[in-house]
Every structure is written in C-alpha cells, then in structure tokens.
C-alpha cells in the first residue's frame, strides 16, 4: 500500500506579466484526509496545481511532495496521480492505448492500464476511441490516468464536474476510501456544495491568495440564525413574534425571523394559540461563508 506524503507549498508565486495569478501561497496538505482546494473560477487553482506538477514554472517559491519537486521524483506516476482537465487525450486513441502510452513512459507494469480502467468502471469501453466518450466517461478516464501507478498522492482538478449523480456518489466513496488508506487527496472545485460531503479540510483561495484554511466545520462561523415560520393566519403570527421583540420580514410563504431559535418561536405561537403550518431553523450555510470569503464578485 503506497502511503501518502504531505504536499507543501512554500511562498509559491506566479505572475503573468503584471497579473499575479498566484501570490505567496504557503500551506501543507496532509495525508490521510481529503482536502478541498476551493475558489471561484480564475482564482488561480489550476495554475497552482500545474506549478505543483511541474507543468508551469513558478515565478518564485516552490511546491513539493514531501520535500521533492515533481520533476525530481524517481517514479512520478507511482508517487503522484493527477488529473487536470477532461480533454487531454488524442480522440482517435482507445482508452486502453491512451493509458498504455503513459504506463510505458513511466515504466509501469503492463497490467496497469487494465487495472486502472477496472477501478473506474471503464473496462467495458477499453477499446473504444476516446473521441466518442461522454463527459462523464472522460472524467473517469482522467481518474484512471491518475490511478495508473497506484500513487500515494492524488491531485485532481475539478474531478466531480460532469459526473452524473451516481458518478458523484461513486467518486466520493472512492476518494474517502483512498484517504482512509492514508493517501493524500487534494481536489479542487469552484463549488463548495460539490465537495462539501467529500472533504475534511478546506483551502480557499481568491485572486491567487490564501483566504481560509481549516476544517470544513470552521467555515460555519456565522452566528446569525433565522427561523422560517408559517401559519394560516400569517399576519397575526407576524404580529405576535414582532411583539416579542424579534425582527420579522415577510416571505411568500410565511415569515422570516432574524436571530431566533425555532424552539422559541414555536413556543410563542403555541402560547398565542396559533396553529403553525411550518417551522424551520435556517442557518447561514457554509456556502454563504464561502461566498463572503472569496469576495463580492463570487462568480460561482
């Protein structure tokens, strides 16, 4: 079982002319968990991952796998599995040959391509030209490439994008089990909700800068709580709640009470003898915190 090594970014910076795509990024991604690398489109996620994988030369700083840069790894595919975009293949080549090309280049065993296809559920399509693949199948093929060398570290750029619900569930379980085996798993996404159920840790960048780093639960920082409540006699309900000192606003179905607990509002209505038709606690969710962190434009 290959064990994971930490991924270390040290003051990693990349400028394109005057634009700093990534600036001064320092962080460590630990093995044994799934880390979400989040940020809006254009935040510098892909550039960061490409620098990590030696495809893009950093302007300054470094990114390593347990201290070794990608280009100096002895057997890169057996150490790090990466999948960047869904379209890096020749459409006229079959999936098996596509993987065989890279298995040979990396000196992996002959059986590696078929084993990887088996893992991602593409065995039945191994001899089909990749040009005819659906987006979901291409994602799986990209993942098969990442798994080719049975690596201890996985770096996946937007792996969930384009998968159907069944595929999303499948990849979640796969990534969770890879992390449970002690591997390092880093996945990027521009949608927090997409990876919310998969990741333990989150790294959020915006405009090339690190804006948040911590456990997923650390994102839920907001204290503001809202209660949505409804009754047949909506106006009287609003009156009663307002009389108790709460801030109330009208919704299409019911009213929204700011800074309240559902239990308190339920009691108020009960004491006033108003039968409720709906009562629910709303939290300003992770997504809200995420949006606040990545800034106003939040082009999600």
């Amino acid at each position: 079982m290959p064990s994971g090594v930490p991924i270390e970014f040290t003051e990693l910076t990349k400028s394109f002319g005057h634009v700093q795509a990534v600036s001064d990024l320092s962080l460590t991604v630990e093995p044994g968990q799934v880390t979400g690398f989040l940020g809006p489109n254009g935040a510098g996620k892909t550039t960061t991952l490409r620098m990590l994988l030696g495809l893009v030369q950093p302007t300054s700083g470094s990114a390593t796998f347990g201290g070794t840069p990608y280009s100096k790894l002895d057997s890169p595919l057996a150490t790090v599995g990466a999948s960047l975009e869904a379209a890096s293949f020749h459409p006229g080549r079959s999936a098996r040959n596509h993987l065989a090309v890279y298995a040979q280049a990396a000196g992996l065993p002959k059986t590696a391509p078929d084993a990887a296809l088996e893992k991602v559920g593409l065995s039945g399509y191994a001899n089909r030209r990749v040009g005819g693949y659906s987006l979901g199948m291409r994602q799986r093929l990209g993942l098969a490439f990442a798994l080719l060398g049975d690596p201890g570290v996985l770096v996946l750029d937007e792996p969930i994008n384009g998968l159907d619900p069944e595929g999303i569930k499948w990849i979640r379980l796969l990534l969770r089990s890879m992390a449970a085996e002690g591997r390092t798993v880093l996945i990027s996404s521009h949608l927090l909700s997409e990876v919310q159920q998969t990741v333990d840790d989150v790294v959020i960048i915006s405009h090339g800068k690190l804006v948040h780093r911590g456990e997923l639960s650390s994102l839920d920082v907001s204290d503001s709580k809202q209660v949505q409540v409804n009754a047949d006699d909506k106006d009287r309900l609003a009156e009663v709640i307002r009389a108790a000192g709460f801030e109330v606003s009208n919704l299409r179905s019911g009213v929204l009470v700011e800074n309240a607990e559902a239990a308190v509002i339920g009691r108020l209505a009960f004491e006033a003898g108003i039968p409720l038709t709906a009562l629910s606690q709303k939290r300003t969710g992770l997504e809200e915190s995420f949006l606040t962190l990545v800034g106003e434009e939040g082009s999600l």
Binding site: G54, L55, S71, L73, P76, E85, S88, H90, Y102
Partner: peptide
C-alpha cells in the same frame, strides 16, 4: 503538433517530467 493540439503534453510530461527525454524519445 498533435500533442499541442490535443493538450496531451500534460499527461506526457506528468509521466516523464524530464522533457528532454520525451523529445529525444
């Protein structure tokens, strides 16, 4: 040119990061 066109340089250089070896090959 097909490597550039189909962006297959990405997996190629992931499998062999020493680019001179790839070109010599």
């Amino acid at each position: 040119t097909s490597e550039f066109r189909f962006q297959s340089l990405t997996p190629t250089f992931l499998a062999q990061p020493r680019r001179g070896i790839v070109l010599a090959g």
